[in-house]
Structures are given as structure tokens and as C-alpha cells.
Design a protein around this nucleic acid. Structure first.
Lengths: 301, 301
DNA sequence: GAAAGCTATAAGCTTTCCTTATGCCACTTT
DNA sequence: AAAGTGGCATAAGGAAAGCTTATAGCTTTC
């Protein structure tokens, strides 16, 4: 469902944050390289679109009202997300031409890499990072052929060929829309039922597919694809439309599960835990930038 | 620091999400009440501004490229934040005229209420909620005078007069910029040093001020305000400028601490833990909507 | 092979947004 | 008390962005 209109403007929210930071519209305008009247008008139209008075202009300086302070805090999360999007897009754009070349599986690229990159950028401001995406198998190939300095994958099979380190835990989840029979709180699905139900899955070569395959193989079973899709987003959209259950990383489904648009199905006898690993070539030494990134991921600094 | 340009457009990101959802530009355009060429041009300019190909238009339908799928996921967090901002702004706008009247201290309003309201809205779509903000003392007065159905406060003193329930834990943190002497990893500040250092504080009547006062009182001390400010945002801005240490909820400082722009000072003998409580009048029965909200906060559904 | 569905381009118009110029206000300095 | 400084708003004019309708081309489906 689209956002309810009117939608505020990102530049205006950013500008408001600068007003909070500098204490005046004028200085915020300078920081944004626009004229003071432009900033003034932007803020006024933001107030109009939200229907709130954000600034108290009665003194010499403009000061945030309580509502303004709230909007600034509410915007902080949005602007943080925008920073991540921008840094992620920049890394994708570089296509492997950079001082630190990262390759990541779709899930890792979508849910973890931008956060890492924003932090890395704040610690090492002038580093240039590129990001290459693929499924677990493709990432392995990129590392194998030295086209990236460090890779991130899910699943078990690949790491033995490389140096590796676990950087996070993840697990798969079988998800359905809330009106699906499996969505009932007391319903528990067995490996046998799961294997005999057509599922929306990632393609062979993906970490998700591998883990599900291994989990069912333990019972002498194998998954029955309703359809195979190359992107988590596409699977989510299909599951939401109700055509079949899907199997996805819990990272992928987190937001939808929290808002109740998807339900995680309880399973028995199906082991869907997995780890996310950094991998790098056994041949040479790790590059300093790659080491720095790994340290940041492990320590948080 | 302002965002790095060019900044993508929220409507375009929302539109891209709809393309992922519906599987075609045309249907996304319909969902957004714009013409198909308008949607097409918006998406093209989004691609240009990010420097990435987001859609594969080679078949009959447009389909997301891997980069497009990544951008959709990166956008999801942003759009979620925008939903929260919009619902929060709408609640503030109603100024107590609604079927569920919520009053909350600044910290709770800034960091928790919008999430609750988005969830509540998805469970009870046609509910109208208003939000009144103030410090802990003002919220108590609003509840006392029946101008809100439920209130949320920090600190200890107020609840005894009302029915109450703990809904979250929070604690205060003394924060400084990274170049401050107290920022050193091994530095530990005692109650005595803290009380003799001018601090940037919230005003009397705020939950933060009360908790700090109580913590120092246990040593026969009291805080020494460098300045008293009415908003968390303003305190943060001042602390970042380096004039003095500040005392803030850990919610407020979370983002800045994670990015390293603020450092939490280790303290000894200063008890800054506190709870966040829902409070409501002891007189009558709780309204059904208020009960629903409380259930949602406790259960998550 | 016709039909249906989807997307891109073009033309024309409206709206938005920015800059410069200017005036007023509040607070500070002398 | 008067002048100075920093700050905000309004107005006018011009540039740019965005939308709609009309149209044409492409792909998949029946």
C-alpha cells in the first residue's frame, strides 16, 4: 500500500535536522548550500504538509518546538536509512573497481552490508568500497577468481575451500500469509508435509536452497519447488499474494512478521539454522581494508 | 552533516516498492494514482540519480534487477520510518481530539509511540489516535485532569497516584563527544565528580532530571546544571558541540553511540536505571482502545 | 495472427523551487 | 540611546521538474 499523502521531502527533513544541529535556519541553509529564503520556504512547506508548527520564530533565532523536536527524532531513523541506501548504491555502482572489494550473497547485501559500510565510512572516511552481489555459489566464484577481497555467504558447503569466520547467525523460516491454514498458532508442520507441499524457493546455488535441501535430506526427502525465484523480494511478494508458502531468511521476513503481514510457520524436525560467514582466499594475506572491515563487524568499532 | 547529493525521492522509492509488489510499472502507477508515463519517468530518474539499473524492461513486464531488489530492501526501512513519522505527526495534529488520547513524555513519544501507533493502526485500521507530549510531570497532570486515556512516563515518583504498568526498561547515560577526557575507555566517573561537573540537563519535572537527582541524592549530592534544556534533541546538539557532558536516555543516544559520535561515560555508584510505565486514572475503567494498545505493547500483537 | 498488456517518447501545460533584493525584528555593543 | 549584527520573511522573476494525454512499438498469450 502506498504511503499516505502528503509525503514529506527528504531534503526538508535533513534541513530540519540541521536547524536542530546549528540552532538557526540561516546556518542550516549554509550547510546545505542553499540560500536562506530557500531554506525558510522549504521548512514552511514542511510544516504545512505535516500540519504542525515545528519552529518557534518568535525570538531572534528559530528554535524547535516540542513537535519539531519529535519530528527531528522521527526523521533520524529515516535519514540513517537514506545514508545506508546511498552508500550501498555507490558501492554497487563501482562494480568491483575500488580499494576494498566486497562480494556478498543477496541476503547479506540487502540486510547487513549497508550498515557495515556506513560505519566503515565513518571510521575510514576516504575508503572506496565496491559491492558485488550474487548467490552463495557466485560469491564463492568471485573470491576464487580474486575479483573481490572478501566475501559473505550463508550455508555450509562453500567455506571449506576458503579461510572463513562466522560473523552472524541467521535461520530460515517458512512463512505464509495470516489467512493460510499453516498460520494457525497451534499448527506444526513436519518435514514430510513440508517436502510434499509446493514451496516458493530461491534457486539452486543459493544458501537458502542449500540449507533447506540439507534439512530435508536428513529425512530422505527433498523440497518440491512451486517456483524458483532469484530474489528475496520477489519471493516475499508472491507469498504475500497467497499462492504458496515460501522459505526465506528470518532477516528478510522480520519487518513483515512484526507488522503481521506474514506469519512464521512452526516446524518440527526441520533444522533451518545457519551461519553467515566471511570468506577469503587461502592464498595470500588479507588486505588491510578487509581486516579493518572484519574487525568492525566483530567488535562493532 | 547533510546527506550526500543527489538524494533520492521518497515517492519514487515507494513507487519502486510497488513495482516489486505488483510486478509491473503500470499497476504500480495505478496504485499510486498517477499515469503510467509519470511512473515510468520517475523510475527512470531514480535510476539516473542512483547510477544503477533497477529494472529490466527487456521482457513485456519490467522486472527488478538484483540491484533493484537490493534498493527495494534498503528502502523498506526508510519507508517504514516515513510511515511512523506520518502517523506520529497525525496524532500530534489532533491535539487530544480522538477516540484514543495518548499522553507521553518526550522520550517515549520520540522513540516508542510511533512504532506502537503503526502497529495499532494495522490491527485496528479505523482508530483515531491523538498524542500529547510533555515532561513526566505534565503527562501526570494530563491524566489527572482526564485529558488523556493513557499516559507514558519515566521515573519513579508519579506512578503511585495512578494505576500503572511497566512497559519497558530504559536507563540514563552520561555522554560526551569522543575527544572529551571522559571518553577514554578506562575512565570511570564517580558520583562526586559527576555532581561537581556542570552538566547539560533536562529541566526539573522531567523524568531524566528526577532519576539523576535521586541517584546523586543517595550520596548526599545534587546535580550542577550547566544549562537546562527542554528537549533531548537540543541537549544532543549541545553535547556534540563539546561545551559540556550531557545526561540523556540511552534511547536518545543510541544512534550517535553506534556511529561513534557520542561516547557513554562509565560511572560508579550512580544508579541511572529506570522503567517506563503506562499510567491511567484510578477512577474509572480503562477505555477499550487503551486496553488494546496496552495489550499490543505487552504482546507485540 | 489478433488481442491484450506493458513501456517509452513527445508535446504542452502547470506547479514547484531557487535566487536575488529588500525590509523588519531581536538582541548586542558601544 | 544609537548603531551594529545576526536572523527571518516576503516579493519578483526565471529556470526546472513533474504530470497528463496521445501515440507508437514490443512481448506474450490465446
Amino acid at each position: 500500500m502506498p504511503l499516505s499523502l502528503p509525503v514529506p521531502d527528504l531534503v526538508s527533513l535533513d534541513l530540519l535536522r540541521s536547524v536542530a544541529e546549528f540552532g538557526s535556519i540561516r546556518q542550516a541553509a549554509i550547510a546545505h548550500n542553499v540560500s536562506q529564503p530557500a531554506a525558510s520556504m522549504r521548512l514552511k512547506s514542511l510544516e504545512k504538509s505535516l500540519g504542525l508548527t515545528l519552529l518557534d520564530r518568535s525570538g531572534g533565532n528559530a528554535r524547535l518546538t516540542p513537535a519539531g523536536a519529535a519530528v527531528v527524532e522521527w526523521s533520524a531513523q529515516i535519514l540513517e536509512g537514506v545514508s545506508e541506501l546511498l552508500v550501498g548504491a555507490r558501492a554497487l555502482r563501482r562494480e568491483g573497481q575500488s580499494s576494498l572489494r566486497v562480494a556478498a550473497s543477496m541476503t547479506v547485501a540487502e540486510y547487513m552490508v549497508p550498515v557495515w559500510l556506513v560505519k566503515l565510512n565513518s571510521v575510514v572516511p576516504d575508503i572506496s568500497v565496491s559491492l558485488q552481489m550474487g548467490n552463495t555459489e557466485q560469491v564463492a566464484e568471485i573470491i576464487r577468481s580474486q575479483k573481490a577481497d572478501i566475501g559473505f555467504v550463508e550455508g555450509w558447503s562453500v567455506p571449506h575451500e576458503f579461510n572463513h569466520r562466522i560473523v552472524a547467525d541467521d535461520d530460515l523460516a517458512v512463512v505464509v500469509p495470516p489467512d493460510h491454514p499453516w498460520a494457525h498458532r497451534k499448527k506444526v508442520v513436519t518435514a514430510k508435509v513440508l517436502a510434499s507441499t509446493p514451496l516458493i524457493l530461491r534457486e539452486l546455488g543459493s544458501g537458502a536452497r542449500e540449507v533447506l535441501g540439507k534439512a530435508l535430506e536428513a529425512h530422505g526427502l527433498q523440497p518440491l519447488p512451486f517456483v524458483e525465484v532469484g530474489s528475496n523480494t520477489a519471493i516475499k511478494a508472491m507469498v504475500l499474494s497467497g499462492v504458496a508458502p515460501g522459505v526465506l531468511s528470518s532477516f528478510v521476513t522480520k519487518a513483515e512478521v512484526e507488522t503481521g503481514r506474514l506469519v512464521v510457520v512452526k516446524t518440527r524436525g526441520v533444522s533451518l539454522d545457519r551461519s553467515i560467514r566471511a570468506i577469503w582466499s587461502k592464498g595470500g594475506e588479507q588486505t588491510p581494508s578487509a581486516k579493518r572491515l572484519l574487525k568492525l563487524i566483530s567488535d562493532g568499532r
